[in-house]
Amino acid sequence: MSTPFWIMVKGSGLAQGDLLHKCLIPKFGEDFGASGEGASESVPVGEADLIIVTQSCDLENGKVDLVALCPVYTLEEFEGENEEFKAKGKWEAVRKGRVEGLHLLGSPRDPTDNRGSLVVDFGQIFSLPPAYLSKLAEACGEHWRLDSPFLEHFSQAFARYFMRVGLPSQIPAFK
């Protein structure tokens, strides 16, 4: 049997790797800010399942005004918006870390079910107030939190995505 990726937690405490469902997020349209009305402009709100990427120590010590989170999708949800991921071998490439900006997490319920895996999109980051997220965590009763060493692997994948460096040229290939 595979080691579970997740533990179930209760309460309002937040940590890196917390999976929070139905978080309210801003939905900025293409014409946002075009009216020039500034502070009086309204922003529609949507919902998303999000995972916390802010470091746990910063959350515990109240060092952040906003918490960074990335969207999480089931494979079916992601395939519904990204048809190319229905192709054979695409999820295996993501699993191996070969698809920039995406990271797979084992199923919270059955880590042996690869189709039950969750995909995190590091290319989208939302910032939400910690007080709002704490209330949401408390209201949901129980929620999933990534367990060690999967949390550290997730954190490392997130860091790797942002520490990429594009070079203007490279050492020529050895032939």
Score class of each variant (00 low, 15 high):
residue 163 M to N: 12
residue 40 S to V: 07
residue 91 W to S: 06
residue 163 M to Q: 13
residue 85 F to M: 08
residue 4 P to L: 09
residue 115 R to K: 15
residue 47 E to S: 15
residue 16 Q to S: 11
residue 3 T to D: 05
residue 107 S to M: 03
residue 45 V to F: 14
residue 97 G to P: 00
residue 46 G to F: 13
residue 163 M to K: 15
residue 133 L to Q: 10
residue 21 H to S: 09
residue 54 T to E: 00
residue 169 S to H: 15
residue 100 E to Q: 08
residue 94 V to I: 12
residue 50 L to R: 04
residue 40 S to K: 08
residue 132 Y to E: 12
residue 15 A to C: 12
residue 119 V to E: 00
residue 158 F to N: 14
residue 79 E to I: 02
residue 128 L to W: 08
residue 69 L to I: 03
residue 133 L to G: 02
residue 128 L to T: 01
residue 31 D to T: 13
residue 157 A to C: 11
residue 126 F to K: 10
residue 143 H to P: 07
residue 174 F to K: 14
residue 5 F to K: 01
residue 64 V to K: 12
residue 145 R to W: 07
residue 70 C to T: 06
residue 153 H to N: 06
residue 166 G to W: 08
residue 93 A to R: 10
residue 52 I to F: 01
residue 35 S to Y: 05
residue 170 Q to S: 13
residue 6 W to Y: 10
residue 118 L to Y: 02
residue 47 E to L: 14
residue 120 V to M: 03
residue 121 D to F: 08
residue 35 S to Q: 13
residue 83 E to L: 12
residue 23 C to M: 13
residue 27 K to F: 15
residue 2 S to V: 03
residue 57 C to F: 06
residue 99 V to D: 01
residue 135 K to F: 06
residue 175 K to M: 06
residue 109 R to G: 00
residue 108 P to S: 07
residue 14 L to A: 02
residue 125 I to Q: 15
residue 66 L to M: 14
residue 62 G to K: 11
residue 72 V to G: 00
residue 142 E to I: 00
residue 170 Q to V: 09
residue 1 M to L: 09
residue 116 G to N: 02
residue 64 V to W: 03
residue 23 C to W: 07
residue 18 D to Q: 09
residue 44 P to Q: 15
residue 102 L to H: 08
residue 76 E to H: 13
residue 42 S to G: 09
residue 40 S to M: 04
residue 25 I to E: 08
residue 87 A to I: 01
residue 98 R to N: 07
residue 118 L to M: 09
residue 173 A to R: 13
residue 4 P to Q: 08
residue 83 E to N: 10
residue 80 G to K: 07
residue 13 G to A: 13
residue 54 T to R: 01
residue 125 I to S: 04
residue 118 L to R: 05
residue 139 A to S: 14
residue 74 T to D: 05
residue 16 Q to L: 05
residue 37 E to R: 09
residue 44 P to L: 06
residue 123 G to Y: 06
residue 3 T to K: 12
residue 14 L to S: 05
residue 134 S to L: 02
residue 39 A to T: 03
residue 28 F to N: 01
residue 73 Y to W: 14
residue 116 G to V: 06
residue 144 W to F: 13
residue 124 Q to Y: 08
residue 13 G to Y: 04
residue 4 P to N: 09
residue 141 G to R: 12
residue 63 K to D: 02
residue 95 R to P: 01
residue 147 D to K: 14
residue 137 A to Y: 04
residue 157 A to S: 15
residue 77 E to Q: 15
residue 71 P to Y: 08
residue 26 P to M: 11
residue 6 W to A: 00
residue 81 E to H: 12
residue 68 A to F: 14
residue 52 I to T: 05
residue 72 V to K: 07
residue 41 E to Y: 01
residue 22 K to M: 07
residue 114 N to H: 13
residue 8 M to E: 11
residue 155 S to Y: 01
residue 131 A to T: 10
residue 166 G to P: 00
residue 131 A to V: 12
residue 158 F to C: 11
residue 83 E to T: 09
residue 17 G to I: 03
residue 7 I to L: 11
residue 41 E to L: 10
residue 165 V to I: 14
residue 105 L to A: 14
residue 43 V to D: 00
residue 145 R to K: 08
residue 172 P to N: 11
residue 80 G to T: 03
residue 94 V to C: 04
residue 128 L to P: 04
residue 119 V to R: 08
residue 142 E to G: 14
